[in-house]
Design a binder for these strands. Structure first.
Lengths: 143, 143
DNA sequence: ATACAAGTTCAAGCCAACTTGAGGTCAAGA
DNA sequence: TCTTGACCTCAAGTTGGCTTGAACTTGTAT
């Protein structure tokens, strides 16, 4: 059993954020001591997942659909695999961006946006993107 | 020379978004035909970079610092390498999350948050995170 | 019994990143 | 020349994800 302060310290999430997550049904407290919320240990793994999923740019709504408050999945295997695919695509883009940044860190060109090697790296990332996605979401570039 | 509609079509960014980016100095138009903005081809590579950097969760402000309007870097090599490092750390987390999602897609356990294998994967991701980061940012979990 | 620290609620506020809407302007074709 | 439609500006609105503040309630320590 944890109170909100302990959970906050352990998770690095502010107490207000934890209350907010509870309010929107992402986590739940198992009871109260007086007014004070009490949390089960299980909530820690939920918070880990939430944290990771946010890193992967899932909205709180999507996360809720994935892990639900009751621990029931709302996504079928196909949907989960699709999410995993889109994460993998993102990983590839990030790898390119990282490579690009490391390049311009060492590149002697005045204007790194003009550096042909940098441009090649960026283009490569976008080519992958257009290959791996079916439809064109808002943020997509494909020349 | 592109007008905003062409650029919008090519980039997948709405015209209003392009105008907004120009307003905050992320891109620039090279002139006007009457009222209508005209863009150089160079702007396409800028948009590519913006798009990728957003995928990596950089704010528009950070992106602006990185690529500036005038094509001048505002970041030094060390900072750029640090950014690249943090992207690489994120890549590791995403890989874990993807693995976790693929696992629960095929996992027969009722409540996947209770699945020991899933928990192990999530914990591994968090361990990596706490190892790769110096300070504890808001979103960080480390049990 | 009383005080206090640590929690609580609820409404309002805040920031980033856009979008929307109302009303204006211009270049090109009929 | 006149219309049309694509673009323009500028202010205001929207959404997601929290934080903040004011006023309230408790279990524990004195």
């Amino acid at each position: 059993m944890l109170d909100i302060t302990e959970l906050s310290r352990l998770s690095g999430f502010s107490a207000s954020k934890l209350r907010y997550y509870e309010e929107i049904g992402l986590i739940k407290s198992i009871g109260r001591r007086g007014l004070k919320r009490l949390y089960e240990d299980e909530v820690k793994i939920r918070i880990s997942v939430i944290s990771l999923a946010q890193t992967a740019s899932f909205s709180l709504n999507e996360i809720k659909k994935m892990i639900g408050t009751e621990g029931r999945p709302e996504f079928d295997a196909a949907t989960l695999n699709e999410k995993a695919d889109s994460i993998d695509a993102k990983i590839n883009e990030l790898a390119s961006l990282s490579k690009g940044l490391r390049h311009i860190a060492n590149c002697t060109a005045e204007h790194h946006l003009d550096c042909p090697r940098f441009q090649r790296i960026m283009r490569a990332a976008l080519i992958k993107r257009s290959k791996t996605r079916r439809t064109r979401p808002d943020n997509t570039v494909s020349y």
